[in-house]
Design a protein around this nucleic acid. Structure first.
Lengths: 262, 262
DNA sequence: CATGGCGATTCCGTCTGATGGAAGATCGAA
DNA sequence: TTCGATCTTCCATCAGACGGAATCGCCATG
């Protein structure tokens, strides 16, 4: 498998996949190179995609992702549906603190940022909506991993752990202990594990099936900030979103939810 | 043309297009019916789409839009790029008023809502991110039309104007006059033209090429609210976003920009 | 002003892989 | 147990996807 020539559908998808946060506008030649498709083939497929609205083309002749695709993408349950439920709570959290507030989901062993409210004068962090990041380093990632399926946790623990700063969790043992601690306290702290100057406090959001579907976090400067005061706010926010999503866990009494081991 | 059998790409796209705000989860049979594709064909294509991540499938066997597609869609320039620039300003606007704040773009003669901050206790409006609406009825739509390409304006004026309430602009003449007035004042007011109980104040956002690329609006209760006080705020917000996008118009002196006729 | 290189576009003969009817599998309701 | 509806798999056929090659346009270089 995989050796045979790719199907038409795969080719079309490979074109869509060629776009990334770092490559949002491309020429025919660039797409052709990126996907390995012959220029003539890429040209034809791009024409069809553009005609439909999946891609757009300016006078400059370059291709970019089209509004129509954005529209369909917005229908993703873990994209917009989640966002819609979460926004009011993130809003509150932002208004109370004016720091960076983020919402992310887990995909494989990476987190994908789904929503973000950036204060103009909050710490600068390079996360961005639609961006991916290794789960083990971020607050949201740890919160999600701690409540993920055991297989996923195991893969994360045994897999390679990329270091971003000296404080990044570097060994499986460290990670395992961190996850247990997060389950115990209900919040995850990532202190300078991505960028030394930033600290994040995160809490998991549960869905109707009582599975962790997302995580909220707030990012503050690492130095001299008493993050402890943020814990109740982040927890309350995550819990509010869980309730809005219909999580049974969030409908029960506060204590049973927070101190539940699994 | 159009009579010939659709190409593979068209079939794949027709599957994506089958999803809509009202139909976010579908069974194979439903998709097959919706697209007109034979079940066997739809099944194969759905398999490929799902394998890639464009669609997702739960244990229930139903298909929904996948995270991967959301991710690509997020790269749309008029989707996320715009949002990223606009968010801080919308944020400010929301914080100052706690009413519904919206950001929309024009696609054809419809507006597409790209961003929205909904206060929990603001007027209830049924707009939603990813939703479309006829431009002539909404505040954002009027603001965008007023600064759109003359051809587009003409199409809107001569085309059929669907009425939503007795206050909806119903004739081409009315619309033409409204657009002129909007160009003069720099803001568009839609008073009960979509829903009787809601009023919106909107202003256009300009991009680098000095073209109106989006519009901001704020929605308040129609009765007894002095919307006049909102005008400066909405204008300032739109202008701030324009500046962030690099609009030459927004970099010039305030007056020349606001009172420019076209 | 000629030349060369690169990208975009069009053409069309070849042949591959998409197609979809049919049959089997599964599930639920009557 | 039977019937209907949906999902899945199979495979012989042939529509239409493919892409090499030719053309055009653009720009930098000599």
């Amino acid at each position: 498998m995989g050796s045979s020539r790719p199907s038409v559908t795969e080719r079309v998808l490979s074109i869509l996949g060629a776009f990334s946060p770092g490559r949002t506008v491309m020429s025919l030649a660039e797409i052709s190179r990126q996907t390995g498709l012959p220029a003539a083939t890429a040209h034809r497929l791009l024409g069809e995609l553009t005609r439909w609205g999946a891609l757009e083309r300016d006078d400059d002749g370059l291709y970019r992702v089209g509004l129509r695709l954005w529209e369909v993408g917005a229908l993703a349950p873990r994209g917009l549906g989640l966002r819609e439920a979460a926004m009011p709570f993130l809003e509150d959290l932002y208004e109370a603190t004016h720091e960076n507030v983020q919402l992310a989901v887990l995909d494989g062993l990476e987190v994908l940022y789904v929503e973000r409210i950036a204060g103009r004068d909050a710490v600068h962090v390079f996360t961005q909506i639609g961006l991916r990041f290794p789960a083990h380093a971020t607050g949201v990632g740890l919160a999600l991993l701690a409540h993920a399926h055991p297989d996923v946790q195991e893969r994360a623990i045994t897999g390679p752990l990329r270091r971003f700063t000296p404080k990044t969790l570097g060994s499986g043992g460290q990670l395992r202990r961190a996850l247990a601690e997060i389950r115990r306290t209900g919040v995850a702290i990532s202190d300078g594990q991505v960028e030394l100057h930033a600290l994040s406090v995160a809490a998991p959001v549960f869905g109707p099936a009582d599975i962790a579907v997302a995580a909220v976090s707030i990012v503050v400067p690492a130095d001299g900030f008493d993050w402890r005061v943020l814990v109740p706010a982040v927890r309350a926010s995550a819990r509010g979103i869980s309730r809005a999503l219909g999580a049974p866990r969030a409908l029960r009494s506060p204590d049973s939810a927070i101190h539940r081991s699994d």
